[in-house]
């Protein structure tokens, strides 16, 4: 078997919900364990051992929730764009399962990023809400998620739902860099004085290493959450097929 043809077989396999379901069982466990360990270690390290910030005291520790949530939420939107491309070009059903699984987690994490940003802003800026560049970018991301969600709710036919949301996710993904850039531009014009919290040039390793661990942990959690949602979705969508009934009967 030549190289290209084996790639093709792998691609077809990847597109098959059944193959994905059968392969992904261990992945869920793996990501789950990784998430538990990383988030556990990261949280203890971040809350107990990282030094307090010389300006903000202990309130900066909210960063260890805020930054991972915001980063992972953005990555989730980008992955939805990629899944959308896969669905549009190769009509791969699994891609829609992925989009459907990404949506709720993406919305929750974006909302968490906004909320934790508010909690962080209160002691730092003295206000729950500040129209900071980052806040606006995150809020736009939330609206992009809500747009796809609303469109999916409005369309009844499963196949059309998939194609419509794939299209919107792709266009959103193309536009995100322009949106982010423009918002940063807007921000510097309006509030040149406000200091950025997370991009302080000299964050010592004792502070950013736990952040790194928390970010990795959040990615692992997202992997765990999305793959287990996808597995549930596959069972629901394929519930009439032979292999699902068999899998249910054997408890696998």
């Amino acid at each position: 078997m030549s190289f290209t043809s084996s790639i093709k077989t792998l691609w077809h396999k990847l597109g098959s919900p059944r193959w994905f379901y059968q392969m992904s069982g261990p992945w869920v466990i793996g990501f789950g364990i990784a998430a538990l360990v990383l988030l556990g270690v990261g949280a203890v390290w971040a809350l107990g051992f990282a030094p307090p910030d010389y300006q903000q005291g202990n309130s900066f520790r909210i960063m260890y929730v805020h930054v991972p949530a915001a980063m992972v939420a953005q990555s989730i939107y980008m992955s939805m764009g990629v899944a959308g491309l896969v669905l549009f070009v190769w009509r791969m059903k699994l891609a829609d399962v992925a989009i459907a699984a990404c949506l709720p987690l993406g919305m929750v994490l974006t909302a968490l990023a906004l909320f934790s940003g508010g909690v962080w802003g209160k002691p730092t800026w003295g206000t729950w809400w500040e129209w900071d560049g980052r806040t606006v970018s995150t809020l736009v991301l939330l609206f992009l998620f809500i747009g796809i969600y609303a469109l999916r709710e409005a369309i009844e036919d499963a196949g059309l739902k998939a194609r419509a949301s794939a299209l919107v996710a792709m266009i959103g993904t193309i536009n995100i860099p322009i949106i982010k850039y423009s918002v940063e531009w807007w921000h510097t014009l309006h509030q040149p004085a406000s200091f950025t919290l997370t991009e302080k040039p000299a964050m010592p390793p004792e502070m950013y290493l736990p952040l790194l661990v928390m970010v990795l942990g959040m990615y692992a959690f997202a992997g765990h959450n999305i793959i287990s949602r996808m597995r549930n979705q596959i069972l629901v969508r394929e519930s009439r097929t032979h292999w699902v009934r068999e899998a249910m009967a054997t408890g696998g």
Partner: peptide, 30 residues
């Protein structure tokens, strides 16, 4: 195009499109 199939697509249209048009608003105003 995506909302023409719904009898009341107006709000959904805005929800889908306006976030993408934020850069136009920002640079245009600026």
């Amino acid at each position: 195009a995506l909302t023409v199939g719904f009898s009341r697509g107006g709000i959904l249209l805005g929800l889908l499109v306006l976030p993408l048009l934020l850069p136009v608003l920002i640079f245009g105003t600026s």
